[in-house]
Amino acid sequence: MHKFSSIAILALFFVCGFDKSAMADAIEQFNKNRIKQMSKFSDRYNYYEKKNGVVQRGSKNTGLDTRKVQGYGKVYNWVEINNSKLGSVSSSIGKRFKAANPIARKESGPDRNLGVISSCRKVHSVSNTVKIKNSKVENAIIGADVNSGVSVTGCGKGVSLTGKSIKNSVTVNKSRVGGAAGLLK
């Protein structure tokens, strides 16, 4: 259904003679709205948006962990942080031990996830879009890391991406993402 709608939008812009960037923006907006709507009903979809310090309506989680997803279908993640701050000193104090201990860090993954963390047992096809603009996504811990992409790590025996499509789109503009970002000021 949504494929047909995308084609319809494309055709409309072609007929109307709009430029390429306007067309790309329209398609992007359409995809964002679709993920936003679907995230209300399905755990395969995640939408999160924080704008001017306010979490927008319909937001679910900052990132998607497919270990909590049922079924095998494609998963979609859309996260936008605009003119906002995510993470604080108080919330990260408990993670100091983890940051200092590389083994603990390896076992528990990144300190913050905005992107997609995939299950090792069943890897889904993934569409991940993360946009960070004029923002800070941080922990007070030096070296603490943030996943904004697609991460399939810590798999014991191995992992198979056979027949999967993984699309990752990350844009970071005038922002600081990661540990001790605030200390770099």
């Binding site: 697609v150 399939v152 993984i166």
Partner: peptide, 14 residues
């Protein structure tokens, strides 16, 4: 652009 990032922003399967 004009940004600092620590961690994974790409596709990682280790």
């Amino acid at each position: 652009k004009n940004a600092i990032s620590i961690g994974n922003t790409g596709i990682s399967a280790k």
